[in-house]
């Protein structure tokens, strides 16, 4: 080869330029900034957040676990609105089967089945995931009410449930441990495993994914199964910790998990984002909620604040920023000066 064409910037070699390139390639920037700002403010106003660290981490795990599974689906540009009701229904399943050794696998299996049904409607029948999973949301919350006979169901083995809420070692409760296991598993899956990496292709350019021979439908199935399974796992955790399954469980989960994913830099149309981003988003939300709770801030105010942060997360997306600045300038009166006339 005698001739090459240099079209892009060359690979950076120095340490700092290299570091800058690496950081420039990440999508979590906004989530990190938000988390740092929150932590900095709280260090002065609510140091209790840090002294009660196990509780704070537990809170993060509570918000985050569903968000992690959801992210797998969001990366493909799909939505799974059924996560919260999957959680409720699987929680009820755990409670109505007396033997936990059967109940837990049954609940998890239910999550997988829910994922398969969602994916069937989306990938095979061709319904938009918003609609398919919305249908699933209603179906499952109905199922949760039917299975529970519309009342909270206590688990038979109360002691097992109460034990489940206790730390295993140090501050680590089973919930926190499971959360980190799920995080590591999904993180490895979407960064190291070929099938997981291809989620980005399915979300970023589906036609390209098809054309390259990627089994797009199978990937969609995988994604929804992950989401369903993780939601069901969350349902199991919720029920065991509460020792009671409520058919209304997880009513605040759906929005919180989407919020965590969005704050973490995941693009709802797919192809851009990361599991680490979701972890950071969940951490920001979790810490913020703990802090606001400790300050006794009214819930509507809390929600307003979280909504504002969500909006900021969305509008600080580089492409949105550009559009906004252009529009703002266009609406401002013409201030252009003529230099040489």
């Amino acid at each position: 080869m005698t001739e090459t064409i240099q079209l892009g910037g060359a690979k950076e070699t120095g340490f700092f330029p290299r570091l800058r390139t690496i950081i420039g390639r990440r999508t979590e920037g906004r989530g990190v900034i938000l988390l740092l700002v929150i932590l900095a403010v709280l260090a002065f106003t609510q140091p209790l957040v840090f002294t009660a660290l196990p509780v704070t981490i537990g809170r993060i795990a509570l918000i985050g676990i569903v968000a992690l599974g959801l992210t797998a689906v969001i990366l493909m540009g799909e939505l799974d609105l059924s996560v919260a009701s999957t959680l409720a229904a699987s929680g009820v399943v755990v409670a109505i089967i007396p033997d936990l050794r059967i109940a837990i696998p049954a609940a998890l299996l239910m999550g997988i089945v829910v994922g398969i049904i969602n994916a069937f409607f989306i990938a095979i029948v061709g319904i938009a995931s918003f609609i398919a999973s919305l249908g699933m949301l209603f179906a499952l919350s109905g199922l949760a009410f039917v299975l529970s006979n519309e009342v909270p169901v206590s688990i038979a083995n109360q002691d097992a449930g109460l034990a489940f809420g206790q730390p295993l070692f140090g501050p680590v409760t089973p919930r926190i441990l499971l959360f980190f296991l799920v995080f590591i598993a999904i993180q490895l899956f979407v960064t190291k495993v070929k099938a997981g990496r291809e989620f980005f292709a399915v979300g970023g350019n589906r036609q390209a994914a098809y054309d390259s021979g990627i089994p797009v439908k199978r990937r969609i199935f995988t994604g929804f199964i992950i989401s369903g399974f993780v939601s069901a796992l969350a349902g199991v955790i919720y029920t065991l910790e509460l020792t009671v399954a409520t058919p209304t469980a997880g009513s605040t989960v759906l929005l919180a998990s989407f919020a965590a994913a969005i704050i973490g830099g995941n693009y709802l149309k797919g192809g851009r984002g990361s599991i680490i981003g979701t972890l950071i988003g969940a951490s920001s939300l979790g810490v913020l909620q703990v802090a606001l709770f400790l300050s006794g801030v009214q819930v509507p105010v809390q929600n307003t604040l979280i909504g504002a942060i969500l909006l900021i997360a969305v509008i600080t997306d580089p492409s949105s920023l550009r559009a906004i600045s252009a529009r703002v300038r266009a609406t401002l009166p013409d201030r252009t000066k003529v230099e040489a006339q």
Binding site: R197, E198, G204, S212
Partner: peptide, 26 residues
């Protein structure tokens, strides 16, 4: 119509769908 995945790297795009793996891991 360009059929690259915008948020994946150059290397990943060149081997889209055919990345070498060991037990599924790239």
């Amino acid at each position: 119509e360009l059929s690259l995945v915008p948020e994946m790297t150059v290397a990943e795009n060149i081997l889209l769908g055919s990345a070498p793996t060991t037990v599924g891991i790239t």
